[in-house]
Design a protein around this nucleic acid. Structure first.
Lengths: 216, 216, 216, 216
DNA sequence: AATGAATGAGCCTTCATTCAT
DNA sequence: AATGAATGAAGGCTCATTCAT
């Protein structure tokens, strides 16, 4: 289970105590399946409870409301993807910046373990709920952190990014990937697409650096 | 029972051609106002009809269903923004590529004539509906067209973009702007934000060109 | 928009087996009352729910849609009438064929326990729904079964009826009674009417027998 | 066009003056077509007007309300069927009672000139509106008249029927045919079915006569 | 901790009918 | 006589959430 997070989410009415991991997992898995099969329209609390083999009441024992399930699911998959990135960076043969960027892009592209429909549905829900910012937070943090680490490396390539830069970088990157998911673009997992996204990020990063260097 | 309810006739859905422009405009304007005031939740057919000063029946005379209104509104504002871009490019004092890009970014940032809440709501609806691709089409076309024109200019900077490049360029650009709208970022209309978006686009464009040139 | 409306899941329609008998009974009784009082026009889901002392939601917990209530009500009263016929035949003092026919006619005439308006409304709905055949099935079966039993008796009066004969017999019999109900004929429960219906059936039955006998 | 009838129908709000036969015919034809194609559910005033090539307003010029169209259509076809019966009786080679009955049954079975779906829809509507009695009036009259004529013939077979007898005879006869139409029985136009209906009527008629004769 | 029957506000949509032109 | 845009009351139905057991 993902590490418990700080209550970023005010909607989870009453923070529950000791969660039965198995039940929560069953609910999330049921949600993913329903989303994958029937999209957002089929995602009702009753449907989830039934598929998970619990009662609606139990469902509300673990999740404050319907949105909380979606959010948890999104977070879980996000965290997994982020963990993948970390691992990729760790064992990366290519320690260059581009190598790292590529690893990250690849991880984000392959997030949600192949359940494209579910991913799309979760994305739609998150956006429709206006929860985009919340979901982006880890990514933003990750980028800020990484860019600083990069900056501290042997090649101090990056200065710390301004908030606007971090924003533009993270949202454009994720925007391209999200759009590919939402539009069900066939090239989502292609090398050509990956190349372009990497190119975008690298070009922007280098431009920022160059500018920063030039400035003084 | 008494009144059959199934939509046996798919044709009735077709929006009449002979639209009374004034009525349609009133409905769209009412929709924008309601969206701006109360968000998606307040956007009910009855509310729209009332605000527009027509009956629900009339509303259905011009729009197949509630979604159609939203879509039309989105399209209208999109087209307006696109037209603004065209105009900006026309009368642009700065004919450089960067000048053009900046004009375009500015037009997109200021789309929906300042109604940020309405814009956000429409965006959410469009996304939730899975209509993102459809809405992006004009932008994609615009970028493809513009980049070719640019390529034919005195400084043949751009080769024709590959589909993936067009996709990444348009979606990352719009992704950054959309995110700022959806997250209600205060810097949406700031110069700093505009600068970064422009920088992103320019960096990517130049990188593509350089690569293309280098390739042979 | 916010709440998806399409019935993606056909299974939700299936009336639950574990019906709380009391609730279902209350709904059916409320329906009969409303039908009796205000006819088909007054028969709305909200009205039924209110009269039954439950919420609309509960109503939909037990019945797939409005028609299902009507159908269930029709079936219930039909079954009751059929049971009455069976009982009448059992304890019939007069074991002659005419005695049996008369018992049956009487049971059908007095079906729906005196609620003529409700009966009419149900009949109209069933007819309008095109469910006439379905409702007639038990009657048809009953007649076929009974005629065979009669044939096996001490006076082997009846050969097995052909499908057309069974059809004509059951539909003409029910047609006369139904018409009297639908047209609200004052003589519905009169002895004269009963006599004529019995006469019709007996005349037809005897004619068939005679013909069958003559044939060889 | 059928001869204009006395205003049996209170619903036709304002009796219109000189009707344009062509328009009325077009409306009735359009109605029949729509009924045949889409059943009762597709039968809306707008649909009828469109198919008939007139405006809804015009439609209301000639018919007081929607029901009036249905009624007129039913009447028209009924009258036609009745006229057919009259003609059949006139030119009937077989002047026997059975010959006449058979001619009548045949005419009723073939009414509505093969448009079974439309006939079914009209029937449903008439029944659902509670207009069954009204529609049966001509039949009832016809039977009463015919049976008297028969009684006056060389073989004074029939005494005048009592109201109950006329009712049972007409409703059972029509009930069998109607049921075959409503249930879309394949044997509707078969000889076997016709035979049975004729047998039913004859058996009943003869039984009545015999009884009547015996009575004094 | 779990159950699941019950709740009910409120939405979308239809279509017969009118009436100003 | 004809038009057809506009009307608007009314109704079926959904589904997140609760709470007594």
């Amino acid at each position: 289970m993902a590490k418990p997070r700080q209550p970023l989410d005010a909607k989870r009415r009453i923070p529950r105590q000791a969660r039965s991991g198995a039940t929560v997992a069953a609910i999330l898995e049921a949600s993913a399946q329903i989303l994958e099969t029937g999209g957002l329209a089929a995602f009702t609390t009753n449907a989830v409870a039934e598929r998970a083999g619990v009662s609606v009441g139990t469902l509300y024992q673990y999740f404050g409301d319907k949105t909380a399930i979606l959010l948890q699911l999104a977070r879980q998959e996000f965290d997994r993807a982020l963990a993948d990135v970390g691992q990729a960076l760790q064992g990366e043969a290519d320690p260059s910046i581009e190598g790292r960027v590529r690893a990250m892009v690849r991880a984000m592209v392959h997030a949600f373990r192949g359940r494209q429909r579910a991913r799309k549905a979760v994305l739609q829900a998150v956006l429709a709920q206006g929860l985009g910012a919340e979901m982006m937070a880890p990514i933003t943090a990750f980028i800020a952190r990484t860019s600083q680490q990069v900056g501290r490396g042997p090649q101090p390539m990056l200065a710390a990014l301004t908030p606007e830069q971090t924003f533009v970088l993270s949202r454009s990157l994720m925007g391209a990937i999200r759009a590919a998911v939402l539009e069900e673009q066939p090239f989502l997992k292609s090398r050509a697409f990956e190349d372009e996204v990497v190119r975008l990020v690298m070009a922007y990063l280098e431009r920022i650096t160059a500018t920063a260097v030039t400035r003084p």
